[in-house]
Write a protein that binds this DNA or RNA. Structure first.
Lengths: 362, 362
DNA sequence: CATTGATATGAATCCTACG
DNA sequence: ACGTAGGATTCATATCAAT
């Protein structure tokens, strides 16, 4: 069994399942997995001008049949579930050839699907023969370890990155080409399925915090490691092929850690400490007997006890939240934004008092 | 067992699996299926202003667990496979809650996936609580009955509709709202999951020919029937709920058949009849012993026999296609466009001779 | 009539820290 | 583990009223 501290920010050369078995349980915050797709391609595919299209024809993508592929995936996904912390999440990318096997197995293992992200490619490989729609998408399934996991999702960070709108499950990202694509001395691509960094940036920024441990058990050229380093996360890579291990280590060594900004440190998603009404009363910022008003003073109530409960017209005692809901005839309620109090002849929001409390005492 | 002619362009009220069993084998050209998604929602979901979101809470979407759902889907998908013609195709739509069950079962039943289409929604329901990425996509899996099916795909029709570019597997289509959404007298939506007609238009136009029989075994409000009628295809609907049956019949009666155009009749995808070299020789348009040249006359060969085989420099006999490939040092080859023959002192493309043959004899 | 603004709503696995 | 209270949360489009 590995000591987790000794394998952090390293690439382990070895078989995915064998190496996963050596990682301690409940030690990994997030996993990204880009397994073999089992493309089941056969023969050569020619472009219309007669040249040969270089698709995925690697030995690592060969399986005897779907059932073998299922067994393989069940094995490594079980180990992934074991090594994840209880609130950890896993992302698995695939295409129509394999993603239905992956999704089915994930559900059978009681992973809980949070989203299925569509990687929509503006520049996909066209369908050379005109036999189908251009296959312009891959799917990334995002799951928590279990239904009850309190997973990390940096909602406001992603909303801000997305120009102030909720980020959707469809991501338009170009395939990995140009200078980002790793090539050997002859200019030949080193790996057939290198993923674009933008894809991993979205994944890492949305589902991890600074300092988290990200595991990629099909490391390839190390995109996950490089992006994790850039964004001040820790990574662990597992990769079977020595050639890829060497390439990824060099790539990560050449990667610079970015200056920490509000997206990287996730400050937009830090939740302020909770403040109960009783704390304001305890500090004398509010008092039992104080009258609370809504903004236009058309509604009022009185603080009745040290917990901050107020009275309703029928005499019931209840929280500032329930009471604000009652007076607005709504089922929800945020009393902090509804109620005001008169202090020194000014109408002051109790939310303002809460902010003062946080500044002074937290 | 139904007589297929008697159920064409009708809506059958009844249980999906029971009614499918009464449809003759190998009788249906295309199936569109929009099964229950088994959403597994619970409780109420409130918008931030406090009103309740009206999601899918119909009895037809309730199952005990995933295994029951799997068994249900296996049953109806098996019947679908039986009723499809050998070259028939099926489209099944779903969301992340169920589509991995569907895709897995389809593959286990030896359906052959042709594409997974992403229905990308510009106007999805937002995530009210900020807990995930906005779920902005559904998936439609398109399969042929078997790997060897010679399925219909109107490639050029779809390319033309798409402004001259190959149509991709990602479709941007808005959800069904406004006047297209069927409502009752009180203005309430009749069905919780009515699909947009644009979606079905793409499906019907791409994968069927005029006059084909389209089956929808979860007919709902009859979008499939209405679109099929508009586009001069035949439909059969199966629907359990009498309310939906009545609504769909009225809807289809009010649907007008569109004037047949080049998209509806699929003329862009009509393939010219194949003409063997032997036919041109038989009709005396070419003769054994004729010399064939490439366009600049730098390469030549001679027709050696009645099948139209020509000789290579090494003496081998081979087809016009293989030989044109040989001289261009390519693995592919279209001999019709490469070779010319001298007739009445003019260099004439053998492709021109083929066109003359088609005009005269086909 | 054109424009602006308020309101309604759609396949949704939609909260969580603390006691 | 479970109940409770604190507290956070939406986008595109259609319709209709008001200007």
């Amino acid at each position: 069994m590995y000591n987790i501290k000794e394998i952090i920010n390293t690439v382990i050369e070895g078989d995915t399942i064998e190496e996963l078995k050596k990682i301690p349980s409940n030690s990994i915050d997030m996993i990204f997995a880009d397994p073999p797709y089992f493309m089941q391609t056969s023969g050569v595919l020619l472009r219309s001008e007669g040249t040969e299209f270089q698709g995925v024809d690697d030995d690592w993508d060969k399986f005897n049949n779907l059932k073998h592929y299922d067994a393989f995936c069940t094995n490594w996904l079980k180990e992934c579930q074991r090594v994840l912390t209880k609130d950890g999440t896993i992302w698995v990318i695939g295409s129509f050839q394999n993603i239905y096997r992956i999704g089915y197995i994930l559900q059978d293992l009681d992973f809980w699907i949070l989203n299925d992200i569509v990687w929509s490619k503006p520049n996909p490989v066209p369908n050379f023969r005109g036999t189908r729609f251009t296959n312009a998408n891959e799917t990334i399934i995002w799951c928590s370890k279990s239904k009850s996991s309190k997973y990390t999702f940096n909602y406001k960070t992603m909303k801000s990155i997305n120009g102030g709108k909720q980020m959707k499950s469809v991501w338009d990202i170009g395939i990995c080409i140009g200078s980002e694509r790793l090539k050997d001395e002859d200019g030949k691509k080193i790996h057939n399925t290198q993923k674009p960094e933008k894809l991993l940036e979205n994944i890492v920024l949305s589902s991890t915090k600074m300092g988290d441990i990200v595991l990629d058990c099909f490391f390839g050229t190390g995109t996950t490691g490089s992006v994790s380093k850039k964004l001040s996360r820790n990574f662990i890579g597992i990769e079977k092929e020595k050639e890829y291990v060497d390439v990824s280590i060099e790539r990560i060594n050449n990667t610079k850690i970015l200056p920490v900004d509000e997206y990287i440190n996730g400050e937009l998603d830090i939740k302020p400490k909770r403040v109960p009404m009783s704390s304001l009363i305890e500090k004398g910022m509010l008092n039992i007997g104080d009258t609370l008003y809504n903004k236009d003073k058309s509604v009022k109530t009185v603080i009745k006890d040290e917990t901050g409960y107020v009275d309703l017209p029928n005499g019931d005692l209840t929280s500032i939240h329930k009471s604000s809901g009652f007076f607005q005839n709504k089922t929800n309620h945020n009393g902090w934004e509804y109620w005001y109090v008169v202090q020194e002849n000014n109408l002051v929001s109790i939310n303002t008092l809460r902010e003062r409390y946080r500044e002074k005492y937290l």
